[in-house]
Design a protein around this nucleic acid. Sequence first.
DNA 1: TAAAACCATGGAGTAGAGTCAATGGTTTTG
DNA 2: CAAAACCATTGACTCTACTCCATGGTTTTA
Lengths: 124, 124
Amino acid sequence: MRIGALSALTGLSRDTLRFYEKQGLIRSLPSSEPSNSYRNYPEDSSERLRMITDARAAGLSIGDLKTLLNCMESGDLSTFDLDAFLDERIAHLEHVIATAQRTLGMLRDTRSAITMSDQLHIPE
Amino acid sequence: MRIGALSALTGLSRDTLRFYEKQGLIRSLPSSEPSNSYRNYPEDSSERLRMITDARAAGLSIGDLKTLLNCMESGDLSTFDLDAFLDERIAHLEHVIATAQRTLGMLRDTRSAITMSDQLHIPE
DNA sequence: TAAAACCATGGAGTAGAGTCAATGGTTTTG
DNA sequence: CAAAACCATTGACTCTACTCCATGGTTTTA
């Protein structure tokens, strides 16, 4: 699949895909046509990218993702302390979830406070 | 309370506090001593900052926070469509929580896969 | 087959959120 | 009282994660 198709599939811009590839988050195969040098992405790229966008939305950095994906596919767990790394990121995500829930609660309270006050001013 | 105390209390650097103040997220009172121009923060500043750091950790931008805090304290709900704004941010936070949970699951799986494989290689 | 649409590379530019350093006042402390 | 610790301002700097642009080759389409 070429970059435009993958972009359409994932909602990520071509530039972002090229950027992610340069960062080592995704890989493309050598072009199928030798006449051009178009990137040729494996069909399952969009699943990998879904994982990546999830993790990014959750606040993991590109560096974190590179480390993780690298380890996961190479099964290489001895290079450095993957265990500690995972524990750290897990703790971080738990913290993000907790803070997001607190903040969410606050926003919902604010919204309902507004609705209340609206009803006061405009009964019926 | 002076900036150093607030910094110690919140874990935010003095620079960050000054930066937040310039951005309009927090306010300081005029200095108590007229001989200096030290910032003089109200005692409840740390609670406000706790809310701010939560929201930041959850992915809300400083701009968002400025808008929110402004509205909340002025009760000014007519200036622009606060309702739509709140709905947007709420949806955003729900999305963040969902993606963080998916990502968290992935990391936990990875960790337990490692633990498994460790037990295979080093039984007893 | 020519225009439109797609792709590549390299490098510059941007936005957001701090962070740091220089310089110079004020307070606290031993 | 002198040194250490604290504070202020300004402006430059960093880092992350894109995003845009210029230039030029390739494919698709009307």
